[in-house]
Amino acid sequence: MAQALVQVRGVSKSYYRDSLEIPVLRNISFDIPEGEFLALMGPSGSGKTTLLNLISGIDQPSGGDLVVAGENIARMSEGQLAKWRSQHIGLVFQFYNLLPVLTAFENVELPLLLYKLSKADRRKRVETALTIVGLGDRMDHYPRQLSGGQEQRVAIARAIVTDPTLLLADEPTGDLDKVSAEEIMTLLSRLNKEFNKTIVMVTHDPRAAEKAHSIRNLDKGELA
């Protein structure tokens, strides 16, 4: 049997307020196979976003191992993690997190600036990514000139432009109306089916979770 793309082994995470330890995740273990579309669900404060942050390498576990694409990121330094993220992870945020002073094209181009690519290569990739999300005609628009749904699609284009190993989305429909949310979920499904992208999505929305292949529930820092 092929090795899972993501292996979570006994991962725990605690935060400290003064000297008081606040456990957020307790001894979590599970695998995510390649090509999976997983929805992480659970009530607020259950540790969904924390788990997503650990898998994406923007935070580090207090204990346990996290092997993603064959590398144990729990043991990486911050510098190594930054480089690893740029190569393997595409992130989609609830509030899009686009840089307001950059155009849609420039926002999508950002992750490519960490690669040694010619300007022409970057342009080609950005145009492809924006075409996939259906915004080929809005490349020169600034975020303020786009609707919420369009902004989120730009954010998805930014997440896929480097062709990452893993696409991680934190409440991608949380700030959108019903129609836009539906469009975004359709787009993520398409990325999973047509482009075989492995997706881990945190959501509160059961309709969004329906698009996923599997659902895992977290409660009080443990897998339910």
């Binding site: 510098g79 930054a82 997190n97």
Partner: peptide
């Protein structure tokens, strides 16, 4: 601050 977090999460170094 949020933009800094976004840039860092994309892989830009300190």
């Amino acid at each position: 601050t949020k933009e800094i977090g976004t840039l860092r999460s994309l892989g830009f170094s300190r």
